[in-house]
Design a protein around this nucleic acid. Structure first.
Lengths: 241, 241
DNA sequence: GTCTATACCACGATAGAC
DNA sequence: GTCTATCGTGGTATAGAC
């Protein structure tokens, strides 16, 4: 039965090494081609293991995919929460600002992005894509994976923005995670925006540095009732039937 | 050969009707299960046509997918540009504000979202998912589909925000399209944010009304050099190797 | 426990008959 | 224009070797 040597597996025993070799090969191929477009036959061939080994160690292709994500995501989300706790401990109670909370959310992602041993920026792109995948198993998995971390950050933001209704905060946090995921996922979609001038294929680091102020402004924006855009929408669209 | 009765096809001749029946069935099934997870056998069965009819009328499954998107997206993007032109004509030259430009971008999407005959909100979700799809053919198709529209809006925003460097504007427009796409795509991912309290399964209309102020604030945010978040990132992360 | 060989059915695509 | 037959490849399951 599936030994719980998920991450350690230094590769002493060839037995445990099989599991890790599959994980590594699957990660690289999923990053390159996506989930659906990557066949188990390609993965097992790259890992130099038998096709049935995936079924034995992970069950299905979907469970293999979840294992690939968990291996990197779980530590990263723990780092996010740990950094949030560290920031909170360094200031007076309930005085932690939005800037540092947002930084606690982004910095561990940046650190992962510049660490090739953990997949680097390509792995974050994989996560971003998974975040928008229609497959129910992916959505459920990511929900469970992110829920505790998100809950912690939502509480922190709620304390930093006491005037903002909880409901509104939920939406804005949703937009933030969406913009972050999409930004990471759509590396080559930049051409949609910058048609000809080939923006230097920035590493995700610079990208996140540009994203942070954008997200911070949206997070601290006035309430939607006051916005000129919604007034414009109201003027153009009569109430729905 | 593929008759060019893409949209009309009122269904007089059974020949043209086949093409539209495939289009309708494919649209519904792609919306429900996504591109890869929808088989041609399921589509042709739902459309009550032969399996090979897809190959005859559209070529490949990919081209069928593009036809499904084009049928709705092309008119919507034309409406966006038309509305932008209308707004620009109503004010003095170079005085069109960000609010109305953003409204021109969002209102046609809202109109489509509340029109079941064009697929409604589910179709927008399909587009949002496609926007983050790793498949190269989808990215290329959407680039070509959106490029002219985006270019028009980028010019408009550039006039409204003369102080903002062009490069920075490109990034922010990228973030806006990302947040928009993701928000549309991740209808059920709301639970990631609002764990237990089941936010009313809002129609996309309310969702976009909440998104608009968020995007407007990000668009008009101070330059990244001034942000506290980037300073925080700088403090935590020494320059990359 | 770990791994392998192999069989199974569904998939996208196409050639050729009608 | 439409259909049937068929090909190569996909994920999955299992029987049995080490």
């Amino acid at each position: 039965m599936r030994t719980d040597t998920t991450t350690l597996a230094v590769g002493r025993s060839p037995a445990a090494a099989t599991r890790v070799r599959i994980l590594d090969a699957a990660e690289a191929l999923f990053m390159e081609h996506g989930f659906e477009a990557t066949s188990l036959r390609l993965i097992t061939q790259a890992a130099a293991v038998n096709l049935a080994a995936v079924n034995y160690h992970f069950g299905t292709k979907e469970e293999l995919f979840e294992a690939v994500l968990t291996r990197r995501l779980d530590p990263m989300n723990q780092q996010r929460v740990a950094r949030l706790d560290r920031y909170a401990a360094a200031v007076a109670p309930a005085t932690l600002g939005c800037e540092r909370i947002l930084a606690a959310l982004l910095i561990p992602a940046l650190e992962l992005a510049r660490d090739p041993a953990r997949g680097g920026a390509d792995f974050l792109r994989l996560v971003g894509r998974a975040y928008a995948d229609p497959a129910p198993f992916i959505r459920q998995f990511l929900s469970a994976q992110y829920a505790p971390m998100i809950a912690r950050f939502k509480d922190a933001f709620a304390r930093a923005l006491p005037h903002l209704p909880r409901r509104e905060l939920s939406w804005r946090l949703h937009f933030i995670m969406g913009a972050l995921s999409y930004t990471l996922a759509a590396t080559d979609a930049l051409r949609i925006i910058a048609e000809l001038n080939p923006v230097e294929t920035d590493n995700d680091e610079l990208l996140l540095r540009r994203l942070a102020p954008f997200l911070l402004a949206g997070l601290t924006a006035p309430l939607p009732e006051l916005s000129d855009v919604t007034r414009e929408i109201d003027a153009a669209l009569p109430p729905a039937a």
